[in-house]
C-alpha cells in the first residue's frame, strides 16, 4: 500500500515549464512516475516532452486527466496561490517543493485549507517517493526533487525535515538491503502542511510499513509532539536523528525553521523526548540505518 501515493497515482506538476520544474518533471518521467499533466498559466494546449499535456488551470488538468496529486514548483511570490488552486480543484495531496515562501502567506494558506479534503506537504521540501519494483526502484511514484535511483521498494517508512539527510538515510537503508515503503520530506519551514506526527500516524496504519526512520532538526517542537504521540500509540520501531546540536542559538541554520529561540527547540530537548518515548536515537548521521536495524532486530 505505502502511504500518500502509490506507483499508480497520477500526478500533475504546477510550474512544469520553469527550468526547475521541467528538469524534475523529466526525471519523474524517466523514473516511470505517472506524470499526467502540467499546469502553466498561459501555456495551455502545449505539450511537455511530447507526452504530457499542459493546462492553464489545475481544475482543467484534473478534469481532463484524472490527476489527484500535485507537485508545486512555482516561484515563492506565486506559490501560495498555486497551492490554494490545487486545494480548490479538490486534489487529495499538494506537495509544495518551493523554497522561500513568506511565512505570512503560509499562515493564510493553512487557515484557508482548514476543512478541505486536501493534504499539504511542505513547503521547502524534497517531496514524496514511493519506490517502484523495477531496477533502482524504477516505476515508483516520485514527486519532487529526490534522486529516484537511491531507493528500493520495501518496508521502512522515512520522514524528515531535510532533503539531503533523507537521501543519506535512504541510501544507508538501500545499500544494506532494506527497502522503503514511502519517504516523505515534510520541509524545513516553520509553518508547514504536514507534521512528523501526521506522517507517523500514517506509517503506523500502513500494513506495508514495518519500521520507521524519523529525521528532525532544531527549531519548534514538532519532534517532541511526534514523540509524545508515538510513546502512547505507535506499534512500530522508530529510529531517529536530530541535526543541529552544535548550532548557535538565535541563528537560522539554512532552513527558515531551523532556529533555537528563547531556549526552545534545542537538539538536546528533542533527543530527550525521543528517548523517553522509546525511540532509538542515532548518535551521528552516519548511523541512521544501523540504529534502526539494531532497534528493529531484523
Amino acid at each position: 500500500m505505502a502511504i500518500l501515493v502509490t506507483p499508480e497515482t497520477k500526478i500533475l506538476i504546477q510550474g512544469i515549464t520553469g527550468s526547475f520544474g521541467a528538469r524534475h518533471a523529466q526525471l519523474s518521467l524517466d523514473y516511470g512516475t505517472q506524470v499526467a499533466a502540467g499546469v502553466t498559466p498561459g501555456k495551455g494546449g502545449q505539450m511537455f516532452a511530447g507526452t504530457v499535456p499542459i493546462f492553464d488551470t489545475v481544475s482543467e488538468a484534473v478534469r481532463e486527466t484524472g490527476a489527484t496529486v500535485s507537485a508545486v514548483f512555482v516561484p515563492p511570490p506565486f506559490a501560495a496561490d498555486a497551492i490554494l488552486e490545487g486545494v480548490d480543484a479538490g486534489l487529495d495531496l499538494v506537495v509544495a517543493i518551493t523554497e522561500g515562501i513568506p511565512v505570512n502567506d503560509m499562515v493564510k494558506v493553512k487557515l484557508a485549507m482548514a476543512g478541505s479534503k486536501t493534504r499539504l506537504i511542505g513547503p521547502n521540501c524534497p517531496g514524496v517517493v514511493t519506490p517502484g519494483s523495477g531496477k533502482d526502484s524504477h516505476g515508483g511514484c516520485r514527486i519532487g526533487i529526490s534522486p529516484g535511483y537511491i531507493h528500493k521498494q520495501g518496508n521502512v517508512g522515512v520522514v524528515s525535515r531535510s532533503g539531503t539527510l533523507t537521501y543519506e538515510a535512504v541510501w544507508q537503508l538501500t545499500t544494506r538491503g532494506y527497502g522503503q515503503s514511502t519517504c516523505v520530506g515534510i520541509g524545513g519551514d516553520p509553518v508547514n502542511g504536514t507534521s512528523h506526527e501526521d506522517v507517523l500516524k500514517m506509517f503506523n496504519d500502513d500494513p506495508e510499513t514495518e519500521a520507521i526512520i524519523m529525521i528532525g532538526e532544531i527549531g519548534g517542537t514538532a519532534e517532541e509532539e511526534a514523540a509524545a504521540w508515538a510513546k502512547e500509540h505507535c506499534k512500530k520501531p522508530i529510529a531517529a536523528f536530530i541535526a543541529g546540536a552544535t548550532a548557535p542559538p538565535g541563528r537560522r541554520m539554512g532552513h527558515a525553521g531551523a532556529i533555537v529561540s528563547g531556549g526552545k527547540g534545542t537538539a538536546a530537548a528533542k533527543i530527550d523526548a525521543l528517548k523517553d518515548a522509546g525511540i532509538a536515537v542515532a548518535a551521528t548521521p552516519a548511523d541512521m540505518a544501523e540504529t534502526l536495524i539494531r532497534h528493529w532486530g531484523r
Binding site: T164, L165, E217, I218, A243, G254, A258, A267, P285
Partner: peptide
C-alpha cells in the same frame, strides 16, 4: 562545505562528535 542545510548541520555535529 556541505550540500543541503540538514546535512550541513549534521556535519557540524559529527565534527564535534
Amino acid at each position: 562545505l556541505v550540500n543541503g542545510a540538514g546535512l550541513a548541520m549534521a556535519t557540524m555535529d559529527i565534527i564535534q562528535y
